[in-house]
Design a binder for these strands. Structure first.
Lengths: 131, 131
DNA sequence: GCCACCACGTTATATGATTACATACACCAA
DNA sequence: TTGGTGTATGTAATCATATAACGTGGTGGC
């Protein structure tokens, strides 16, 4: 588990907000929630988010322009994390598939593409919402 | 190849702008390019983009909030399209991997997740830029 | 003390996307 | 011909997301 004891006040607030949420939150949504705690400007939230993402404690969901707390208790060692996003209830499930990793690596080396951050997001309906 | 002869003037303009570009363009960037052609408001661009995406002639790149012309001469039959995005030159390479499709399907059925649109975007450096 | 570093705060602005409403034209049916 | 329906269009206003530019304040090393 990534060390969390060195977070600054703002980072802690933002992380707590995300951990308390059912699903992804947009930066401005987070800001609204934290106004009572003294946050006032988007930048305060964005700075905290940048750091938290860097630490792997928070993930950005590109297709929603929003953020979720990492649900794994540990570091994903640089692996690509896949997200299954329920369009009904908003809940996000993280998972990692070594076979994806392998296929991605294969394609990249075949095309001499130096891989950086990879995004894999599946939208749809989770089991309970599909019923 | 998707029929392109029924596009409206605005759709044609937007598609041409994207086809003429080296890489993805944001909606406002497209708007700037098309002002000389009489476009004035974001909505004109967004409406054309919506339609072009629907027709499969244009793809949205989520991690950039931008759009590219489809480089395949044909319809991708509902398959997930992967994008390799060079962070240096901006160029985007499309590809499809049936094995991804298969693994995704497997994960989704194992978790009873009803799959909708899937996004797979790899950022990094293309062969020429990595050199 | 002084400097460098880093988090923080504030204002303004850029960029991305949508809502609401009005207009114009083609096509078809009464 | 008239009128209705559907689709594309145009315009203004507004919401949502993200960053730039600038200044402040504390902490640790020297």
């Amino acid at each position: 588990m990534t060390d969390t004891s060195t977070l600054t006040r703002n980072q802690r607030l933002v992380l707590d907000a995300l951990e308390g949420a059912e699903g992804p939150l947009g930066a401005y949504r987070i800001l609204e929630e934290l106004r009572p705690n003294g946050l006032r400007a988007p930048l305060q939230v964005y700075r905290a988010l940048d750091r938290l993402v860097e630490l792997g404690l928070v993930h950005r969901i590109e297709c929603l322009n929003a953020f979720v707390a990492c649900s794994a208790g540990h570091d994903h060692g640089g692996e690509t994390i896949a997200f299954a996003i329920c369009e009904e209830c908003g809940r996000v499930t993280e998972f990692v598939d070594p076979e994806f990793e392998h296929r991605l690596g294969a394609w990249c080396s075949r095309h001499a593409f130096r891989r950086g951050k990879t995004t894999l997001e599946i939208r749809g309906l989770c089991e309970s919402c599909a019923a």
